Simulated scan of single mutants.
Amino acid sequence: MKILHLETSSKNCSVAISQGDEILCLCEEVSENYKQSESLHTFVEWALEGAGISLQDLDAVSLGKGPGSYTGLRIAAASAKGFCFGLKIPLIAVNSLKTMIEPFLNKEYDLIIPLLDARRMEVYSAVFDGKSGEMLTKTEAKILEENSYEEYSGKKVLFVGDGALKAKDILQFPGEDFKEDVFPSAKYLIKEAVDKFNNNDFEDVAYFEPFYLKDFQGVKKKKTS
């Protein structure tokens, strides 16, 4: 099957095309300005061109459902729904935090904990087994404190994601390692998306909502006289 994968939950606007388990093309860019609204459809066009296929060749759309950037998730969800409705193909959704752990599985780590920056001292987080990739805790919005994750003291723990930059200065237990330049990526949606496709594990396109985890918090404009 040929699947279009969209991942925009973080600073990384990421689009991939796969055929079965094989990645055919990847277009992505990390930007501090969250350029999903500008880049997403251009990246889709480039990925299709790079893969040598058209939209009509797609069998499904796979989406990183969050948690993460409210605006980024809305943009990708709206696009994914449009493709699915227009092409009459199914929608597959994957927890975005899962896409951050795959490159580090089966290495020296007992646990892998992705941390996506959620502003101030808060992160989006979950705990995964470092060998099997099994999710051991639910996804949560967590305020980082000195004793956060101390229950895992004594284990070899890898923190990944832009939230790890904050954690590195706060957490106080041995055995931890940090990789701050890791973001959710469409290329790591492929494995689970293929499994879900084969099991007919699809979303209801009409009623699907991204996994926001927190309510939208906008910035109030200052009143002008």
Rank of each mutant, 00 (worst) to 15 (best):
Y207I: 07
Y109V: 03
V160L: 08
K187E: 11
G161P: 13
E38V: 13
A16G: 05
K142I: 10
L158K: 08
K156L: 10
I170E: 00
T137F: 03
I170D: 00
E108A: 09
L6P: 00
G133N: 06
L26M: 08
A78H: 04
S69F: 08
F208E: 03
P174C: 05
N33L: 14
K166Q: 02
K168M: 10
S79G: 10
K179C: 06
H41P: 00
L136R: 06
L4G: 04
V94D: 02
E146F: 14
G130V: 09
P114C: 04
V44K: 08
G161Q: 13
E22I: 12
K155I: 06
A186E: 00
K35F: 14
S37C: 14
K221Y: 14
K214I: 10
V61H: 01
V30N: 02
F211W: 13
A141Q: 07
D169P: 04
E134L: 12
M135Y: 09
C25N: 07
E49G: 15
S125R: 04
K196G: 02
C25M: 02
E108V: 05
I23S: 09
V30D: 00
Q56G: 04
I92A: 06
K98I: 03
K221H: 13
K196L: 01
A77E: 01
E29G: 05
L136S: 09
L4W: 13
T71S: 07
K223W: 14
V194Q: 11
V61F: 11
P184L: 09
F216Q: 11
F43D: 00
K107S: 05
L63K: 12
F178D: 05
A206R: 06
S225V: 15
V157M: 09
I113F: 11
F83K: 02
S96T: 03
S125M: 09
S125F: 08
D181R: 14
F104A: 00
L73D: 02
L105N: 00
S153T: 14
M135Q: 15
H41I: 13
I75Q: 04
F178V: 02
M135P: 03
G163F: 10
G68M: 05
E150Q: 14
T8F: 11
E45R: 14
S39G: 02
I112K: 07
G218H: 10
S148I: 06
T99V: 04
E122M: 08
F173I: 04
E45C: 09
I23Q: 11
G68F: 10
F216N: 03
E145I: 09
I112C: 05
I143T: 13
A141R: 10
D169T: 11
S31V: 12
E134D: 12
P90K: 07
F43T: 02
V205L: 07
D162T: 08
K223V: 15
S39N: 13
D129M: 12
S62V: 03
V44C: 13
L116M: 15
S79V: 10
L6Q: 00
E28M: 13
D117W: 11
V194W: 08
A141G: 07
M1N: 09
P103G: 01
L6K: 01
E7S: 09
I101G: 04
G50D: 05
I112W: 06
G133C: 03
G50W: 03
A186N: 01
F128Q: 07
A126R: 05
T42I: 13
Y70E: 05
H5L: 14
L158T: 01
S9W: 11
E38K: 15
T42F: 13
G130S: 02
Q56K: 14
